[in-house]
Design a protein around this nucleic acid. Sequence first.
DNA 1: TGAACATATGAACAAACGTTCATATGAACG
DNA 2: CGTTCATATGAACGTTTGTTCATATGTTCA
Lengths: 115, 115
Amino acid sequence: MHTVCENVTVNDTAIRALQRELPEDACFEKSANLFKALSDPSRAKIIWALNREELCVHNLTALLGMSQSSVSHQLSGLRAAGIVTARKSGKEVYYTLADHHIREIFEAGFEHAKE
Amino acid sequence: MHTVCENVTVNDTAIRALQRELPEDACFEKSANLFKALSDPSRAKIIWALNREELCVHNLTALLGMSQSSVSHQLSGLRAAGIVTARKSGKEVYYTLADHHIREIFEAGFEHAKE
DNA sequence: TGAACATATGAACAAACGTTCATATGAACG
DNA sequence: CGTTCATATGAACGTTTGTTCATATGTTCA
C-alpha cells in the first residue's frame, strides 16, 4: 500500500471520496483551453476591444498597435476555440465575442486583476 | 493619414474613442497572468481539488496521479501568482485557494467548459 | 544522531506558443 | 483585366512552458 500522509482533517478515505468525484480529464482540458484563450496579453486586448464593439481586423490592428498578421493569427485561434465569431462584409471580416459567458468570465478576471 | 476601413458602424473617430479608454498594458498583463494560472489541465485539476478542500502535496499527488515534483512545481507557480496560499503543519504543507474571486472565476470557466 | 518521510528546487529537454516575414486569397473598383 | 485593399496562412525562429530526474532542505521519531 502506498503511503499517504495522515492527519486530522484529511485521510485516505477522504481522498478516495474526492477521487470518485474527480471529473474526467477531458473536462480539465476543455476548461484549460478556455482559460488559455484569455491567457495572453495580446489576446486579452483583442477580447477587451471586442467586448466593447464588433470590430474588423484592420480596426483591431490600428487600435491595439499589433501587426495585421499577429491579429489575424490570434483571431484564428480564438475562432477555433469558439471565443469569437466572424462575419464577413465585403472585403472586411468583423469579429464579435461568441457568447455572454465569455464576456462574464473575462470581465471577472480583468476586474480582479486590477485589485 | 493611415487608412482605416470605413463603414457604417465603426469609423476612425470611434476607434480613437475606444483608444482613449484602452487600459494600460500592465492591466492586460495582470489579467493574462491570472488566466494563465488556470490554463493548464494539471493546474486545473489542482485548483479543482483545492476548491473542494485544503490538501497537502502528497494528497494532491495521490489524488491526481501526478508526480510529486510536478505538483510541487505547479504549486510554487500558483503561489507566486497569488492563486493559492500555503500553511505548514509539521512535515506537510497544506494548500488552499487564496480567495473567493479565484473560486468564482474558475467555477465559471469550468462549468462553461462542459457546455 | 540517523533513518524515513514530505516538500522544494535546479538542470535538462521536448513541446507548445507568439511573433515576424513573405506570400496567398479574395473582394472592390477603375 | 489589373490594381489596391483586407484578410488569411505557412514557414521560421526565439521564448516560454511542463515534465522528469536528481538532489537538497527540513521535519519527525526511534
